[in-house]
């Protein structure tokens, strides 16, 4: 992309250039260190205090707050959260793949409008979109009132797992479309022509050429959706409520209702470790995959 030949700097200039670069990078890295890394370290420490609503925190260090996560209701809540995230990822992939294909084949104005439709929701607050789904799904909402107007029995879909799943799918769909489309856009059209020229059917071309080449986009998109839906709070809280309690809702209530900071911190650490493992695994997977494909 860069035009012109790279200019060779003498070694001492290169070194001072690098030193300036480190200085320029420092403030941003410092923010991540102070506002993310250090607080996460602090949560580790808080998790080692004895669980319970005690202030000021004292005693320990011990692992009782982690052990407490093994008793009710946490295991079943964790399983439900995991199930919702996996289902969201599957739905988002099934719906997102054809859209990404369609988008990557569109040009000009159509592509611009589609991009706008995909990107705009990402810039809206998740609370506003969850509110929209409440208005649609509630007993006195669009679905309920339409059924009543047709003199059919009112059905309220609010406060169900299905409502949570629908809203999660909607809120993560744009990410998956963009991730898949980025991969699809990088496929060399000559490859597809070659596959077809060699006699492969469109179906065979799809599974032998297109699908493997979109795998990096899929892995990036799927890990993001998986972790994002595991971490979602507004959607399960507003659309599921007590009918679909998730892990993050438990953390919130441990802090604001039970004042049990050690357990809240322990649950946060578990979630963070799980999310990091998922993201790290996905990064490793796509790196190894691309190394194998390109023989690097």
């Amino acid at each position: 992309m860069r035009g012109g030949a790279p200019i060779e700097f003498p070694p001492h200039m290169d070194r001072s250039r690098r030193r300036v670069a480190v200085l320029l990078l420092l403030p941003a890295l410092l923010v991540v260190a102070v506002v993310a890394a250090a607080p996460i370290g602090l949560l580790f420490r808080v998790a080692l205090y004895p669980p319970g609503p005690v202030a000021p925190l004292s005693g320990g260090p011990e692992l009782d707050s982690f052990a407490g996560l093994l008793s009710a209701p946490y295991p079943s809540v964790a399983l439900r959260t995991l199930r919702l995230s996996l289902l969201t990822t599957v739905l988002v992939t099934l719906l997102g793949f054809p859209v990404a294909l369609f988008l990557s084949r569109s040009r000009g104005l159509s592509r611009r409008i589609q991009t706008l439709l995909i990107v705009s929701p990402l810039l809206m607050s998740v609370v506003v979109r969850a509110y929209g789904w409440m208005l649609i799904l509630g007993r006195q909402g669009f679905v309920g009132e339409t059924l009543a107007a047709l003199s059919l029995p009112r059905v309220g879909l609010l406060h169900t797992e299905a409502a949570v799943l629908l809203a999660l799918t909607e809120s993560f769909l744009p990410f998956m479309i963009l991730a898949l489309a980025a991969s699809l856009d990088r496929i060399d059209p000559d490859l597809l022509a070659a596959a077809r020229g060699l006699g492969a059917s469109p179906v065979r071309t799809f599974f032998a050429v297109v699908a493997p080449l979109t795998l990096p986009g899929f892995v990036a998109g799927a890990s993001f959706v998986l972790v994002g839906s595991l971490s979602a709070y507004a959607i399960p809280a507003l659309l599921g409520g007590s009918a679909a309690r998730t892990f993050v809702m438990e953390i919130y209530e441990l802090v604001t209702i039970s004042f049990d900071w050690p357990t809240a911190a322990a649950a946060s650490i578990v979630l963070l470790l799980f999310a990091s493992a998922l993201l790290g695994g996905a990064a490793l997977l796509s790196r190894r995959r691309s190394a194998r494909t390109f023989g690097a």
Binding site: R18, L29, A36, P39, V227, Y252, A275
Partner: peptide, 29 residues
């Protein structure tokens, strides 16, 4: 422009908060 050796790692660190649970980051702060 810096021709830094750990470029990719630095970028990954800077972008990482986008994929971590926001409520947990808030609790940390």
């Amino acid at each position: 422009r810096g021709s830094l050796p750990g470029r990719e790692a630095c970028l990954a660190v800077l972008l990482s908060p986008l994929s971590l649970p926001g409520l947990v980051l808030g609790l940390g702060v």
